[in-house]
């Protein structure tokens, strides 16, 4: 009798310890971000206060008004156009990378051909080239082609940045779909093209969406290349814009936090929507040769 009671108690203790550790862990993961978000809604003077103000006395949307150029106070940084640039560049490069990636991923998933492994590895290795290292020759080439400080210039770079990984993911999604389904459809009267659109594509759809989100966020978040290939409001993106704030004489912490929130929110939402598929794609594409 006593034995079971004791072991039940120790089991309970273990459970509590487990939960506690997890809780602390999640706190460490979430707190930094949450602190930035919280600060975005506080006036700068409260952030700068010495001694620190722990309990916010004032919650305000002024910081957002400030960076987007409405409201009483304004900053001299055109966050609005950065936002548009980021959106246009990320969306366009994602759509193009997805089209190229679906074609490539399908090819890897469904055909046997010579140099298959080599080509796959080659794509990955190209992806591994550090952004800053790539930025120099691309910068020199783009200046000759007149692509520096244009959205197009950055879009082209981001497409190539996203293609390898998109292929990796989409290859994984297609390989989860048995080849026999497409064959059955072809026997049922479809062309290969029809079989793809009526059977394989609908089944891979959510996976492709996940790959798209990943590509979008890669473009949305990229800094090293954007910082060198953009100059003005024509093409500057949000991550580059964030650095504008530090270049100023005094750091506008509240403004930066507000901008950070603007960058984070889409990432959080999109991640939340596709996380399940993304994990499946990552593991399946990797584990099953």
């Amino acid at each position: 009798m006593t034995v079971t009671v004791e072991s039940r108690a120790s089991k309970q203790a273990k459970k509590v310890a487990l939960w506690l550790t997890t809780f602390v862990l999640m706190l460490v993961m979430c707190l930094p971000g949450l602190w930035v978000v919280l600060s975005a809604f506080r006036p700068n003077r409260e952030i700068l206060a010495k001694p620190p103000v722990w309990i916010p006395e004032e919650i305000t949307l002024d910081n957002f008004g400030k960076i987007f150029g409405f409201g009483a106070e304004q900053v001299g940084i055109p966050v609005g156009s950065y936002f548009t640039n980021s959106l246009v560049i990320a969306l366009t490069s994602t759509v193009i990378a997805l089209i190229i990636g679906v074609a490539g991923g399908y090819s890897f998933a469904r055909y046997r051909f010579r140099f298959k492994g080599g080509i796959f590895l080659g794509l990955m290795l190209f992806r591994a080239v550090p952004g800053i290292a790539l930025s120099m020759p691309v910068f020199m080439m783009w200046s000759r082609l007149g692509l520096v400080d244009t959205k197009m210039g950055l879009i082209i770079v981001y497409v190539s940045l996203n293609v390898p990984f998109t292929i990796w993911l989409i290859d994984g999604f297609f390989r989860q779909i048995p080849q026999a389904l497409s064959e059955a459809a072809q026997v049922d009267g479809c062309t290969r093209w029809q079989a793809f659109w009526k059977i394989e594509f609908p089944l891979a759809k959510s996976g492709i969406a996940a790959a798209g989100v990943f590509a979008f966020l890669t473009s949305w978040n990229e800094f090293a290349l954007a910082s060198q290939l953009t100059r003005s409001t024509d093409s500057k993106t949000l991550p580059v814009g964030l650095l504008d704030f530090t270049a100023q004489f005094t750091i506008d912490w509240a403004g930066m936090c507000a901008l950070a929130v603007v960058i984070i929110i889409p990432a959080l939402i999109l991640t939340f929507i596709v996380q399940k598929h993304l994990i499946a794609g990552l593991t399946f594409g990797g584990v099953k040769g």
Binding site: P178, A180, L181, E183, A184, A185, V187, D188, I199, P202, L203
Partner: peptide, 13 residues
């Protein structure tokens, strides 16, 4: 022709 596959190959969707 029509074919019955080993794993049936029914369209899951």
């Amino acid at each position: 022709i029509s074919m019955v596959f080993q794993n049936y190959a029914l369209y899951p969707h």
